[in-house]
Design a protein around this nucleic acid. Structure first.
Length: 416
RNA sequence: GUGGAUGUAGCUCAGGGGUUAGAGCAUCGGACUGUGGCUCCGAGGGUCGGGGGUUCGAAUCCCCUCAUCCACCCCA
């Protein structure tokens, strides 16, 4: 049998309404904060990701879908969205205008072993603000994110926040941490022994017990921030408190992408397996310049859509109410029935019908299985009387109404 | 890349060397040609994940392989 390849999946009609609901909610909330959508390519030059995400990150080292195109150029299926947004910002010189608030949604690709909440093609909704350095912006975007979750009636989420400092204060901290970890070699796990050399910060969020204990007394990044970064971090916390957004400071939290500076954060949820981060992001003040643009402070995040889907599985009926038009009788009745169907569809009503001119019973049966909310019944008698029967499939009740203006009657019914 | 679990009907699962592989749900038909859901009767549907081996005989035992799930690593 032909199948999807590993880590890829179809999203079938049974769950598509949930996805559309998430997307619509994101558009509504983000646009209320002044964001506009940007659509970025799915494929970019490999170099863009190498330079933005960082050469020694796991994503670049072993997770990218990289191919040669027909001219031998190395291209890569995007593993994340920020790099492309920044590229577009520079390429189209959006820095000439006011600050840019951009959001995007779509598939990302990483070659990883699939598990619960992780696929090789997965969907993200991301938002990026380019050109604003104020801590008030950081706080407002976090507030927007949490508002998005609460609009979706998501419970049990935790916002964890940290600061990774900047290129002035982080190197000094990194060296000090390295010295500290150097004295703990005996208890660190195998992976962490390598991390000490490559990226000592990563040792801080290792889950193995030895490492957790070894780092419990490690120097904290928050105590080594420069004045600028410390002031920024505390201002963000103050603004969040004022806005009523609950955030937990987690000085061990580290991000997997190199471009983050200052504020970083993660939103986790319970009950969805080991991959419980549903959104994450932070500030990346150097990236635009690193990629050849002007100095541009930025803040952004990405939300993992299938992980949100896991949390919203029990969501209430999101599908548009369906109306079934059951027609039976001669050609004149069917002509009148088609007219009714046309009028309903013109009014935006979702309509299903029978194509085989079956009797009323099989039609009602089909309507029931399609989950129709109402069935309009038009037979020879109704047509002769200029009426149509409206059956409520949940209540089992039925009433006869005028055929004229039926579309308005139905629209009124399904909106209440 | 590493580890563990699982692959039998559309779905959930029984069967653990011996005729023709079963159940529930779902599907289709009938009871029922002006009213769905309920009930009853009947029907269709399977390369037992794939390949190889052991055996008189394999869905069942062995080896290999593939896939899925979960976890690690890492990440949204």
């Amino acid at each position: 049998m032909l199948r999807t390849i590993r880590g890829f999946k179809d999203i079938l009609p049974a769950e598509i309404h949930l996805w559309q609901h998430i997307e619509e909610t994101a558009r509504k909330i983000f646009e209320s904060y002044g964001f506009s959508e940007i659509r970025i390519p799915i494929v970019e030059r490999t170099d863009l990701f190498r330079r933005s995400i960082g050469e020694v990150t796991d994503i670049v080292e072993k997770e990218m879908y990289t191919f040669s195109d027909r001219h031998g150029e190395s291209i890569t299926l995007r593993p994340e969205g920020t790099a492309s947004v920044v590229r577009a910002y520079i390429e189209h010189k959006l820095y000439g205008g006011p600050i840019s608030k951009l959001y995007y949604m779509g598939p990302m690709f990483r070659y990883e072993r699939p598990q619960k909440g992780r696929y090789r093609q997965f969907y993200q909704i991301g938002a990026e603000v380019l050109g604003e350095e104020s801590p008030r912006l950081d706080a407002e975007i976090l507030e927007m994110l949490m508002r998005f979750f609460s609009h979706l009636k998501l419970a049990g989420t935790t916002l964890q926040i940290n600061s990774l400092g900047c290129r002035i204060c982080r190197p000094g901290y990194k060296d000090e941490l390295k010295r500290y970890l150097g004295g703990k070699r005996g208890v660190l796990c195998e992976d962490c022994l390598k991390r000490v050399e490559i990226n000592p910060l990563r040792v801080l969020d290792c889950k193995s017990r030895g490492c957790t204990e070894a780092t419990s007394g490690a120097p904290s990044i928050l105590e080594h921030l420069c004045d600028e970064c410390r002031g920024h971090f505390h201002a963000v916390l103050d603004c969040l408190q004022t806005a009523g957004v609950h955030a937990v400071t987690n000085k061990r939290m580290v991000r997997g992408l190199d471009y983050y500076t200052k504020t970083t954060f993660e939103v986790t949820a319970e009950g969805i397996g080991a991959q419980n981060t549903i959104a994450a992001g932070g500030r990346y003040d150097m990236l635009v310049r690193d990629l050849g643009g002007p100095d541009t402070p930025c803040f952004g995040f990405a939300i993992g859509m299938e992980r949100m889907g896991l949390l919203l599985k029990e969501a209430t009926e999101l599908k548009k109410p369906l109306v079934f038009v059951a027609v039976f009788g001669g050609d004149d009745v069917h002509a009148a029935g088609m007219d009714v169907i046309d009028r309903l569809r013109e009014h935006g009503v979702a309509v299903e019908r029978d194509y085989e001119r079956k009797g009323i019973k099989p039609q009602l049966k089909r309507a029931n299985r399609l989950g129709a909310r109402y069935v309009l019944i038009l037979g020879t008698d109704e047509l002769a009387a200029g009426t149509i029967a409206v059956k409520d499939m949940e209540a089992g009740t039925q009433e006869v109404v005028s055929l004229e203006g039926i579309e308005a009657t139905v629209v009124k019914k399904i909106r209440t």
